[in-house]
Amino acid sequence: MSEPKHRIRARYDDATVTVYQAYSPALGLPAAAAGRFPPAWKRDRMTWVKPSFLWMMYRCGWAAKEGQQTVLAVRISRGGFEWALENACLSGYERGLHTDRASWQRELRRAPARVQWDPERNLRLQPLPHRALQLGLVGEAVRRYADEWITEIDDVTPLARRIRALLSEGRDDAARELLPKERPYDYRAAHLLL
Rank of each mutant, 00 (worst) to 15 (best):
M57G: 03
Y93R: 03
A31V: 13
V138I: 14
Y12M: 07
G35E: 01
E177L: 10
V19S: 08
A84M: 11
S2M: 12
L192K: 11
A22L: 08
A174C: 06
E66C: 06
R9K: 10
H6K: 01
S103V: 03
I8S: 00
Q116A: 15
S24Q: 07
D154H: 01
R106S: 15
Q69L: 06
V49N: 00
I153K: 10
L133P: 05
R183L: 06
R188Q: 15
M46Y: 00
M56N: 10
R11P: 00
A160S: 15
L90I: 05
I153F: 07
C60H: 11
R106M: 14
L125W: 03
K181Q: 13
L192G: 04
P180G: 10
E107L: 03
P127C: 06
Q105E: 15
A174D: 15
E152I: 01
D173C: 02
R59A: 09
D118F: 14
G92S: 14
R43E: 09
M56W: 07
Q116L: 15
F81M: 00
L166N: 08
K42Q: 10
A10C: 10
E86C: 04
S2V: 15
V115C: 13
Q69D: 06
L90Q: 07
W117G: 03
A10G: 09
A141I: 03
E120C: 02
R171T: 06
E148Q: 14
T70Q: 12
D172S: 12
S168L: 08
M46I: 14
A40G: 03
G61V: 09
A111H: 01
L123I: 15
L29N: 13
G96M: 06
R101S: 04
A189P: 00
R78T: 03
A40T: 02
L27T: 13
V17K: 04
G61I: 08
Y12K: 00
Y93Q: 06
T70Y: 13
S2P: 11
R171I: 05
I8M: 02
D172Q: 10
P51C: 10
R188L: 14
L167W: 05
F81S: 00
L72T: 12
G139C: 08
G170Q: 08
L159A: 04
L179P: 02
A146I: 11
T99M: 07
D118W: 11
D147L: 15
I76T: 05
T47Q: 13
R45C: 02
E86D: 15
R131H: 12
R183W: 08
D118A: 12
L178K: 07
C89L: 01
A10R: 12
Y20Q: 08
V71E: 02
L72F: 12
T151V: 13
L133R: 04
P112W: 08
R101E: 13
C60M: 11
I150K: 11
E66K: 09
W55Q: 12
R164I: 00
E177P: 02
E82I: 13
H98Q: 09
T157P: 01
A190R: 13
V17S: 05
I153E: 07
E66I: 09
D118P: 00
T70K: 12
L193E: 07
V19F: 11
L166R: 14
I150T: 10
R121W: 03
S91K: 02
A63N: 06
A189Y: 00
V17M: 02
Y145H: 12
M57R: 05
R114C: 03
R95D: 13
D172N: 05
R109F: 04
A102N: 02
R114V: 01
L137A: 07
R162H: 14
L167N: 08
K181I: 11
